[in-house]
Amino acid sequence: MSMIQAHALNLSFGLGAGLNQVLHDVNLSVEDGESFGLVGESGSGKTTVLRCLAGQYRHWSGALSIGGVPLQHKLPKEHFRKVQMVFQDPYGSLHPRHTIDTALREPLIIHGLDERDDRINDILLKVGLNDSFRYRYPHQLSGGQRQRVAIARALILQPRVLLLDEPTSALDVSVQAEILNLLADLRQREKLTYLMVTHDLGVVSHLCDKVAVMQQGRIVERLDSQALSQDLASHEYTRMLVQASRDFSAETPMAARA
């Protein structure tokens, strides 16, 4: 059964002459336990798809469902127990005046869950932090640690689906590796389904099994990550993206460029 399903998803902003359609008939299907990547450049609408699933936009048309349950335009509280999101910017996604403890406690209070202290300690350990971080403020943490906290906050409600919006693009390479490893481990251990948005083909082929390429609000190609690296992409735009990232990638020798 597919965990995330989007059928003929359309979304536009503005009215009349200023009408700007940002999503055109997007169809997506992500299986349970799968890790799916949405690739595209800025303005391609990849983040918009994520935000529709997260309930940030309410005027989409088409059909969306998570775990077989169709989404309403106004989402019930239970929805958020199933779907959580991790943001791109680790500096902006944590409340600057709340300690880590407050940030992690908040979702537990909202959903009326008990054994809060145990849950907070557990989740901190799961993301590779410990309880010495509990009473610190975000500005006392490094970028990588903040992103771990953001992941902990998303996972503390034990969701089935994690929406990842460029979770590592604001991080240094060495920290990115740590976070990608953590995400891979968590998916395996917690049986999570990932939908990840990124512009980095290296990251997407590392973490995802399947990839959809978006351009100007449309999905232009769907393929396996395996196929992506074996140059089996058929759409021109995908080939261009692959080529562009190959140009700077590890395996191309210097001579090829000159």
Partner: peptide
């Protein structure tokens, strides 16, 4: 690619790559 310093080598290894898919990325 023949860099000697462990930091440089570590950075290079930590890069996820399309053509060289690994289950885990080596952490610096």
């Amino acid at each position: 690619q023949y860099a000697e310093h462990p930091y440089t080598r570590g950075l290079l290894a930590a890069l996820p790559s399309m053509d060289n898919r690994r289950a885990r990325l080596p952490v610096l």
